[in-house]
Design a protein around this nucleic acid. Sequence first.
DNA 1: GCAGTGACGGATA
DNA 2: GTATCCGCCACTG
Length: 115
Amino acid sequence: MKKPSKLGEDFFHNVHEVVKLIPAGRVSTYGAIANYLGAKRSARMVGYALNGSFSLDNVPAHRVVNRLGILSGKHHFPPERPMEMALAEEGVTVIEDKVQNFEELFWDPAIELAL
DNA sequence: GCAGTGACGGATA
DNA sequence: GTATCCGCCACTG
């Protein structure tokens, strides 16, 4: 038997996997990912997991924002490459730390991966 | 084991 | 829109 815990290393890993599945030019939210992983009330854990994503190069954490489309984690990015810039490079318009056209760019794993 | 903290979300005022 | 409170769970001291 594996670890019976709902959240743990698997959760941490799953978050990275889902984030890596986000197509360029699209964005997702902590809540959506948490919901997809079955921990919709643990959106905080998603943010925590993304914090560990800095150990990896394949995790585009800049595509993950809060439900308002605000770059909540921009303060955790290196000043050399802020989220706003990374998103702009992919065609996402960001004004004052907020994703414009958020509803259209929103990518929900629970929906996109369910098809 | 307990308290504080955190890249959140929702409800309430 | 802002402020406050609660819930949820992992990490750190």
